[in-house]
């Protein structure tokens, strides 16, 4: 009996400790990043471009590049992902092609980003002759994000009540029309969370971008962004920390990335909450 009690207490402590470790890790990361980066996170850093003449560093170009990458990759991944999800949930019947597609989606979501970066370089930079550019980076990120978009939209399509579809069909609406007018408007939350999750991956990605989008720090307007190389915030963090030893700047960028991570989680939570309320 004594041994049993001791074992019970021990396992309880271990389980509690594990959970505490998780919280502690997060707390440590936040403290460390904020503590080391807050001093360097100045308005000047955020609002300028790096200047060799003055010897100053600015991350405005990296912020702009992140936004460009986000926009371009979503423009590609969102339609493909949503259409694929519609096909898989609304049209596909179980068969060889469908299991092939399922397998492909599983595989895509398991491939490490460094391999995406490598193949992205071979295909987009060299074969398609995009050179090292935001276009090549965005295409690579888009392919990485398609599985995420497909899965979230699929989940959401499945929660649209079948009675909506039946109601529309019984009124003589065609299948495509039914999906467009009744099903898709009710799966908007899934499309939004697909966007948000993709946004999270785009901002945090670095390995896939190193060889496709490069690490230039020059500010370019939207019209030229596709053809110019550029570092995203995450890539810039890596370059400043690893290659240039600018740890203050790296931690300042880390603060921004952490804030983005928080916001993304918050947005995802709010969407989930709104959906719950609706049901």
């Amino acid at each position: 009996m004594n041994r049993r009690q001791a074992a019970g207490i021990c396992s309880r402590i271990l389980v509690l400790a594990s959970a505490t470790i998780v919280i502690a890790i997060l707390a440590f990361i936040i403290c460390e990043v904020v503590g080391r980066g807050a001093g360097s996170l100045t308005w000047q850093l955020i609002s300028t471009t790096p200047s060799y003449l003055n010897g100053t560093i600015g991350i405005l170009p990296d912020i702009a590049n992140t936004i460009y990458l986000l926009l371009f990759s979503l423009v590609l991944a969102l339609p493909i992902g949503v259409i694929s999800a519609i096909y898989l949930t609304e049209y596909a019947h179980p068969g060889k092609i469908e299991s092939c597609i399922e397998f492909a989606i599983e595989t895509l979501s398991g491939i490490p980003s460094i391999i995406y970066g490598l193949v992205g370089m071979l295909v987009f930079c060299q074969l398609f002759n995009f050179k090292t550019s935001l276009a090549a980076g965005a295409c690579t990120l888009a392919i990485m994000n398609i599985p995420t978009v497909i899965r979230t939209v699929q989940e959401s399509l499945k929660t649209v009540p079948q009675s909506y579809r039946e109601g529309a069909l019984a009124l003589g609406s065609g299948k495509g029309h039914t999906i467009w007018t009744v099903v898709l408007p009710n799966a908007i939350d899934g499309i939004m969370s697909g966007c948000i999750l993709s946004a999270g991956r785009v901002t945090s990605e670095s390995a896939a971008l190193l060889f496709t989008a490069g690490f230039a720090h020059s500010l370019v307007p939207l019209s030229e962004a596709l053809s110019s190389p550029g570092a995203s915030l995450s890539v810039a963090l890596y370059v400043y920390a690893k290659e240039q030893g600018e740890f203050g700047v790296a931690f300042a960028i880390a603060i921004m990335l952490l804030i983005i991570t928080f916001l993304i989680n918050l947005a995802a939570m709010m969407i989930a909450k709104a959906k719950k309320k609706q049901i």
Binding site: I29, S234, V235, A254, N265
Partner: peptide, 18 residues
Amino acid sequence: TSAIDILAGIPSVIYGLI
């Protein structure tokens, strides 16, 4: 739950940096 979600979302370069 939020802590785990945030940990999952933190960019790998931040883990590397720390």
